[in-house]
Design a protein around this nucleic acid. Sequence first.
DNA 1: TTGAAAGCGCTAACAG
DNA 2: CTGTTAGCGCTTTCAA
Lengths: 342, 342
Amino acid sequence: MSKITIRDVAKQCNVSVSTVSRAINNHPEINQRTRNIILKKIKELGYTPNSNARNLKRLETNTIAVLIKGIGNLFFQPMFKVLENEITKNGYSFLLYKVEEQDNEIDVALKLSQDIKPKGIIFLGGCFMDEDKKILEEIGIPFVVTAIVSKNMSIKNSACVGVDDFLESKKMVNYLLSLGHKKIAIIGSRYDDASIGMLRVNGYKQALTENNISIDENLIFTTTKNEDPYTFEYGYKTIDILLDKKLDFSAIYCVSDAIAIGVLKRLREKGIKSPRDYSVVGFDGLEINDYLNPTITTIKQPVENMALTACNVLFNIISGKPYKKVVTFEGELFVGQTTDKR
Amino acid sequence: MSKITIRDVAKQCNVSVSTVSRAINNHPEINQRTRNIILKKIKELGYTPNSNARNLKRLETNTIAVLIKGIGNLFFQPMFKVLENEITKNGYSFLLYKVEEQDNEIDVALKLSQDIKPKGIIFLGGCFMDEDKKILEEIGIPFVVTAIVSKNMSIKNSACVGVDDFLESKKMVNYLLSLGHKKIAIIGSRYDDASIGMLRVNGYKQALTENNISIDENLIFTTTKNEDPYTFEYGYKTIDILLDKKLDFSAIYCVSDAIAIGVLKRLREKGIKSPRDYSVVGFDGLEINDYLNPTITTIKQPVENMALTACNVLFNIISGKPYKKVVTFEGELFVGQTTDKR
DNA sequence: TTGAAAGCGCTAACAG
DNA sequence: CTGTTAGCGCTTTCAA
């Protein structure tokens, strides 16, 4: 294991370490010739600067950190390459950082900002509580959040991009209503989920209320268990519980496509047909949905565009250009093959 | 932004920095009482040690790094939680590190081992060339590779766990042959793919040869473009090219489930039925396959078990216990609804 | 344009 | 058991 340091390079080039440092960091105040000599030597030796030492000194690195909570969620999948492309294309280096399910992403961000001192942070998923906002202020690093609940943030140097989950959810339910469905069951996430899942449930309630349909709490399913509601399995298991209750409904609104996929599988196994017996709808617009049979009626979020915009807004914040604090995308009602008139 | 250092803590506790260091690092030679006082103060101040400074000094951290190449590949998805669980359960900290498609994972590993000095590395995906092996030797850090081509490695402190792609591929083709299919088209990856894709193609050839069926190069599709062969889209587009050639075949072997999913979608759009018109098979056993309609006949790799084993082998290497250099799992021939007798 | 030297925050000898 | 001290490899004043 080679352990070449900046001193080795300096010695080999008969210059001081500071000159080598200037060479690697593209400092202006260095002779082009010495610079080239040093750079050649560096390549020759296969030297790479130790990033710990660098980060220890530097007050800022050239990195954009992407913090993702819920790496298992297929929804984020298409974002990776967009983020990576956009970030590197703009001269930053890209760091994808996974936040464990039980960890608080704010704490992680705090730690990260102390350690690697990124130029900016993009949060994917997770959930910001009100009290978190103050802490975020402390970060002092520009950040933007996507696919996250907190829409109106008073924090400086930050923005939020995404769809309006509440409104889009209403859109979905209104579509079901327009098909003649009046009794719509909904499969949500944790009952105490203060995050996106709850916004969608609230949108559902609101849509019903606005249409003078009373809300039947029995038709609202939220789990108490600490399950991941963005999995096929969750939908697969949950639909059984719902069916066992022998309730009367004609449509099933799953707050994520993943849930819907699980639900449809189970229905198929039971010989229950969609949309004949039940209309089933999802939310998100996962890539896989285009390849399913039947395709699921859902709200398609413009994931790639959201990722792209998240980057651009962040770049604007970083470079002091004007930016919109909240960028709201419209979801597209994708009518698949799992819905029909009542 | 708070910038509390170990000195601040030391001052606040009226001890020296080394004592604080001992406290955070769980050193034995420290008084339990002072330790507790320090720890309490640390929590109170919200102090977190700067990992750059730590890593700079330390010759080794307590981290297991997981290097993944191809984070877009659904195949790896179920591994994340297993790896995370297993690694943290065993007292290590878990670092997921994404290797960019164009980067060489060995270089990344080298850099990583210099920077964060992990106790061990797990490689997911990617491809090791013969020349890489020497470089790996230099890492000097225990590592295990999964879902990677290189099966017989002479490198010390390393192991390989996975299925035998060549044999499993033969198994798949033999199954198709047993159904009476003689003309089997195969959709592979890049023609110069020295990785898993090629092993599977080779298995296909071998199975045919062993059954005295001559290999028709026209039926072997490999792309020259730099596409990701583990995407739905690749299958979706590729099947058109294949069909346009008006070749005679009764079965389509896709070297990944993702390809098969894309293929089936396109066939459906064209009104071509599987298995009636073509039997279609995949490889991998993606989780989503259980939820598809029809389910795809495939080779199921025991992903979770592979991930688990990768961890355990790595732990054994680290702690100097005996271990198997090559752990080969058997794939399960999963007969789905996309295959039928010729 | 370059070099000398002072740390960044921490760990780990080495003394006490 | 605890404190003093010397760096880890690098960046960055400050002088030359």
